[in-house]
Amino acid sequence: MFKRAIWKNLALTAIGIGLLVCVWVVAWVAVGNEYVVPAFSDCVKKLAKLLFTDAGFWRAFLHTFLRVLQAFVWSVALAMLVATLGYVFPAVERVFAPVVVFLRSAPVMAVLLIILVWTNAGVAPVIVAFLSLFPTLYAGVFGAISAVDKELVEMSRVYNVPVRKRIAKLYLPTIAPFFAREAGAALGFGIKLVVSAEILVRTRASLGILMQDAQIFGEMPTLFALVIVACAFGFLCDCLGGGVARLFERRGK
C-alpha cells in the first residue's frame, strides 16, 4: 500500500515536470529566439557538461551549498532555542513577536545592502538567508511545540515524568514531522535567498556569480542550466523533508 502510494506520487511528480518541459518547448517555438528562450535540449546538454566535466561549477555549488547550510543551521539552532523558551516562558514569545514580524516584513535585498556595508560578499548572503529563514522556522517550531497534546502534557505532569524523558519521548517525536517538512522547505527557500544575494553582491565562487556571468556573456543555456540546478536542489530538499516527515508520521499507525 505504502509502496503503491510512493509510485503514484512519483508518477504525478513526473507528469508535473513533463508539463513544465512542454510549456518550455512551446515557449521556445513561439518566441523563436535562442537568446530569450534557449532550446530545452541545449540546456540539458549544458547541464550535463556542468555536472560531469566542470570542476568550477562544483566548487561554486559547494560554496553556495555551504552558505545555505550555515544559514540553515544557525536558523534552526536559534529557532529551537527561542521557540522552546517562548513555550516555557510566554513572556519570551511576546517579546519576540514584534522581532519576528519585523524580520518577516523587512525587504530582503535592501537589508542585504546594509549588511554588505558591515560585512563582505561571502558572509552577507548567509546573514540575509538566516534573517529570512529564522522567522519561518521559529514560527514552525513554536507552532509544533504548542500543538503537542495538552492532555498528554498533563498526564506527564501527573506521573512526574522527568523533563528529559518528556522531551525525548513526547515532544521531539511529536514535532519531528512538522520540523522535517519545515526544514526541507527552508533549505529549498535558503538556496533561493543565497543565490539571489550572491547575484546582487557578486560573491566569488558561487552559483550566483556563475548565473550573472552567464547572463552578461549571453550564455542563456548555461544560465537556464544553473537555474535548473537551483530548482532541483530546492525540490530535492522539499521531497526529502516530506519523506522524513511521512516516516515519522507512520509510526504508531
Binding site: 492532555e151 498528554l152 498533563e154 498526564m155 506527564s156 501527573v158 506521573y159 512526574n160 515524568v161 524523558k165 519521548k169 513526547l170 517525536p173 511529536t174 515519522f248 509510526r251 504508531g252
Partner: peptide
C-alpha cells in the same frame, strides 16, 4: 505525592506502544 490518574479518555501517546506508554509513566 505519588498519584495515579485514570483519565476519562485514555491519554496514551500515539507513537509509543502499550509497553512504552506504561514505561513512560514510570
Amino acid at each position: 505525592a505519588k498519584v495515579g490518574y485514570v483519565f476519562q479518555d485514555p491519554r496514551l501517546i500515539p507513537h509509543l506502544t502499550v509497553e512504552e506508554n506504561l514505561l513512560y509513566a514510570g
